[in-house]
Every structure is written in C-alpha cells, then in structure tokens.
C-alpha cells in the first residue's frame, strides 16, 4: 500500500534520549500504518513508550530515527511551524489531564483551534459543539469552575470543533472515575463516528482498547504483533449523549 493512502504511517521510528547511564532507548524500529476512518488503540504498560509514540505521530517531538507520514506529508520535511499548521488543519487532541487553558473560558478554549485554523465563524462553531455536548450553560465558565468530567467534555469539544480528519487521544479517561470515564468514552466514540474521523488512542486500559477497530501493543519500546480487529464492537455507540 502506498504511503499516501494511509492517514498515519510510521517507518522505522526510533527515539533515544541521553541519560547518566548512557543512551536510553525509548522507542525502536516502530513500523505501522493507520488507514483513513480506522480507529486504533496503542496499548502498553507504564513506561512502554506509548505517550512518546503519540507525540512523535502528532509531530509534537522529533524522532531520533525513522519518519512519520501524516496525511501524506513527511513530518521530517516540515519545520516546527509547518507541523503546527498541519495539526491546525487536520488534527484534534484529547489528553488525560484535559490540558485546557486556565485563563480562557470554556467557549474561548473551544474557539482556540478554530481561530488558529482561520475558521470563518469560530464563535458560532464553538457554541454549536458545546451546545451539542450539553455544556450550553457553561460557556463563560473557566476550567477551574468546571468538574473533571465537564472539563474533559470541553476538551473533547475542542478536539472535534474544527472537524479534524485525525484524532489523537492520550488516556482520555485516566483522570476520571469509572462512571464519568464511561460517559466520556461514549461521547468520544459517538462524535468520532459522526464525523468519520480516524482515531489513534493511547491507553493502558485493555477494556477501552476493545472499542477500537484494532490494537497495537508496545513493550519495551518495540511494537508487538498486531492484534486482529476486535469482533466485540461496543453496542452503545451511536447513542445520543447526555452526561
């Protein structure tokens, strides 16, 4: 398959960092590809290099070796600003600790990526998404005035507001209790399905990984044999969400 037919492709990807005991290998010889519309979970224990891999795939960090193609573009060929622009146009993020900007209101946080991508009506679009996920009454609230679940919903709204082709999620339920976490998962996959986006999800939770089309397992910085696509797709998908 040609690189351009995949939305994400990693080729011989490696990351090493210097340490007092010599060079530390975090990722080594990673090869895989994600097709458009596919949802892929990257699973592994703590310290297996999951988050580092996600950072490299999103162009948030540069690899020590190998390359990443994102939407047909070799990230190595772009500079920092070029990578930022690519993210602004095509990529959304959901993080474990929400990563909302504390100085901006819920509405302003959601508007941020829209404005960065030169959207025609950032405020209208942001309002619409927030309304859709049931936070219409929380537009002017600052992150500190919202509960953990609400904050993560704002983060999800921010990720989907610009209609990205590709969504990266890093342990999106890691900081939430089980019940709230479940609702967030439902919301994430429901929106993903609605928008037909490609999802790359990093988690140590194999339960959560089962929601994805397939899982990749990281161990000691190397990718283990890929699991086949799960047959047990979640049944709740497609539910309208009220968290």
């Amino acid at each position: 398959m040609n690189a351009t037919q995949y939305l994400v492709r990693a080729e011989n990807l490696g990351k090493r960092v210097p340490s007092p005991e010599g060079e530390l290998i975090i990722l080594d010889g990673i090869n895989f590809a994600v097709a458009a519309g596919e949802s892929v979970a990257i699973v592994g224990a703590s310290g297996s290099g999951k988050s580092t891999l996600l950072g490299l795939l999103a162009g948030l960090d540069t690899p020590s070796s190998g390359r990443v193609w994102l939407a047909g573009t070799d990230l190595n060929s772009l500079d920092e600003d070029g990578r930022a622009q690519l993210r602004a146009q095509r990529v959304g993020f959901v993080f474990q600790s929400f990563q909302l900007l504390p100085g901006l209101t819920a509405l302003e946080n959601v508007m941020l990526p829209l404005e960065l991508a030169d959207h025609a009506d950032p405020e209208g679009a942001a309002r619409a998404v927030l309304q859709q996920i049931g936070l219409g009454s929380r537009l002017r609230h600052y992150p500190a005035q919202l509960s953990g679940g609400e904050q993560q919903r704002v983060a999800i709204a921010r990720a989907f507001a610009s209609g990205p082709e590709l969504l990266f999620a890093d342990e999106p339920t890691g900081n939430l209790d089980r019940r709230t976490g479940q609702r967030i998962i439902d919301l994430l996959f429901s929106l993903n399905r609605q928008q037909g986006a490609t999802l790359v999800l990093v988690t140590h939770d194999t339960e959560l990984a089962r929601y994805c089309d397939r899982s990749l397992e990281l161990d000691g910085g190397r990718l283990q044999a890929a699991e086949p696509v799960s047959a047990a797709a979640p049944v709740e998908l497609g539910l309208s969400v009220s968290v």
Partner: peptide
Amino acid sequence: FESAILRTLGARKGV
C-alpha cells in the same frame, strides 16, 4: 505549558 498546548493545537511560533 500554555505555549505547548497552543502549539499542539496548531499555533505557529508567530502566534
């Protein structure tokens, strides 16, 4: 931290 978020969301250095 904030500048990292902005850049993750696609802000150029100029912004």
